[in-house]
Nucleic acid binder design. Structure first.
Lengths: 340, 340
DNA sequence: TTCACATTTCTAAACGTTTAAGTTTGTTTG
DNA sequence: CAAACAAACTTAAACGTTTAGAAATGTGAA
């Protein structure tokens, strides 16, 4: 391993004390222009690169942001194959990098426990995306560092948050279906009881049905995982339910799986059954049919999360931010108008 | 901010010196069983979490692996929207996490220069995916830490590497097309001159054509970016070229864009034109047609990269590893047998 | 009991920074 | 010209670990 150039080497080269080097490096005032130049020259000449471990040790600043991403149930791999999360991550990384922060991605399921990692690494902030058990959030509170929750539906409104109005989005989606003549509306969703995004969207679905006095039929509700596989899997059941004229999949990835599965059993979209999704993930463009869906701005979600966490680090002001980003329906090709 | 529990606190609690605590924490021998238990009890009681910054400072070990991912040309966002990279990243993260390493993802385009970041953070290892300018690799050499290149086609075989035989993969793909009666074979590819994955796959394409004495026609080569948009874009040109019976897209993401574009101008796949891809990305399942493609094991690529970098960190043995993973053709629905 | 030696524990320096407090130097003012 | 003050710079402690090497303790043989 190469010998490291330290602040001492620079001090010797520039003929000043190490404190002065530190002041110059950190752009603090009280250093004469002339001295600063001498120091800068020495830094350049020796190619001095400060050691962030040392800095972190004394100043408790690491320039590291933890990003918590949901994990698959089976093997606890991060859900990075799910386009929603990779799009989100990309946005977060991009906006954090601009301000010289790096991110450490991870699930909550590490042997130590997440809080330990935060403390170990002196993380400056945390961005959490998705739902987790209450104890997890309790732990985060203890860490007492700037934290932004994204789509977490944490009962405790202690943290900053950015999210969308999932319930409303699902409501307008369902309403749109009803207004297009559909009455037998299925829903494919994740676990409803958990009180997260899936539950909220389910509630929005019910809101719309109630508003139009359409009964909520239990066998029209298909509950499982929010992933492509479940979409495919559920298609078989749906194909048996002849009354259904449309299905609301609470996430695009589900909708895509569903359509794939439906087609494979000879059902045409939207002629035989209509499908509407939620999220407007980038990758759904791949699909041959334009997916009608509720659009949310995933990039902006990541950007906001990054901005808030950084702001919260720099400013002492503890004004909590709870941002709700807008949603809108995007009409493409997978929902057919139905004439009664 | 909370007061940190340090090794001193534990030492006081357990009634031993801080050195002993350190030995216990790091599982070094020479500590009596009895003492170790006393220490463990104290650690648990106080909830002691070692400070990795401090550890890194003295031991030069950070448990941090840098992962370099290509960036988009325009705005330098990481290419995480490209499913190949997110799949790869997921695999790397999963395998690194098992051994208690965290990763810091980044592009090469950070104001400091990548090497600076490596030094700043005392990174233990680096995984690079994709092609970069020679100077970048020269820089990495200077860093002198375990490094694994993935799909980098670095002329200098100084580093560990994991890749596939891209040329051969493209060769068997093209050969498969020829054997199915195709003679006018288009290719949609990235920049050919750069000498990376795109070039290699282009070479494999030429290899097969040569073997069967089929002339290489310049206007059958469509060069652009390796992304979904270019696939769509190029469809128009391809649709004008009436002789083409099949197109080899050197990446699935291109193939998917291409098919989408082709369909939008009324061309049916595979009836009018066949398409073959490369990579077998997970997300292509979404597509309604099964994409015939050259399969590589992206998960294993990430796994191997992670394993090699960790092995290289732990063992002093400097035996260089250059791993080439197998490829195989996966026949699905997008290539039609052509009867002459 | 004493000595030699092995085992366990401790002391203290080192890692590379930041920063409060102190010192020096320079400038202004009565 | 000295006093007062501001500006620029330095000293030294602190951050929380690891790890040689020293010290203490324990064990067994003569």
């Amino acid at each position: 391993m190469n010998k490291r150039v330290t602040i001492k080497d620079v001090a010797r080269e520039a003929g000043v004390s190490i404190a002065t080097i530190s002041y110059v490096v950190n752009k603090k005032e009280g250093v004469r222009e002339e001295t600063a130049e001498k120091v800068s020259a020495a830094i350049k000449k020796l190619n001095y690169i400060p050691d962030l471990s040392a800095r972190s040790l004394v100043s408790n600043r690491s320039n590291l942001i933890g990003v918590v991403i949901p994990q698959t149930e089976e093997d606890k791999e991060l859900m990075l194959k799910n386009p929603f999360y990779s799009e989100f991550l990309s946005a977060v990384e991009y906006n954090l990098r601009k301000n010289n922060f790096q991110l450490i991605i991870s699930g909550t399921n590490i042997d130590k426990g997440y809080l330990d990692m935060v403390v170990e690494r002196n993380m400056d902030g945390i961005i959490v995306v998705g739902m987790y058990p209450d104890e997890f959030f309790e732990d985060l509170k203890k860490a007492n560092i700037p934290t932004v929750l994204v789509d977490s539906y944490c009962k405790d409104h202690y943290f900053h948050s950015v999210q969308i109005n999932d319930r409303y989005g699902a409501y307008i989606a369902t309403k749109y279906l009803i207004e297009n003549g559909h009455e037998n509306i299925g829903i494919v969703t994740g676990k409803i009881k958990t009180g997260g995004v899936a539950s909220e969207r389910y509630l929005g679905y019910k809101d719309a049905l109630k508003e139009f006095d359409i009964p909520i039929i239990e066998k029209n509700v298909f509950e499982g995982n929010v992933d492509f596989e479940f979409g495919i899997q559920v298609a078989k059941q749906i194909s048996k339910n002849k009354e259904l004229t449309v299905v609301f999949a609470i996430a695009d990835i589900l909708a895509l799986g569903l359509i794939k599965g439906l087609k494979s059993v000879g059902i045409n979209i939207p002629e035989d059954i209509s499908v509407i999704g939620f999220d407007d993930i980038y990758i759904s463009k791949i699909f041959d049919l334009g997916l009608t869906t509720v659009k949310q701005d995933i990039y902006k979600k990541g950007q906001k999360a990054a901005e808030i966490v950084m702001k919260s680090i720099f400013e002492k002001s503890k004004t909590k931010q709870e941002i709700v980003l807008p949603v809108e329906i995007v009409i493409r090709e997978t929902v057919k108008k139905r004439i009664k």
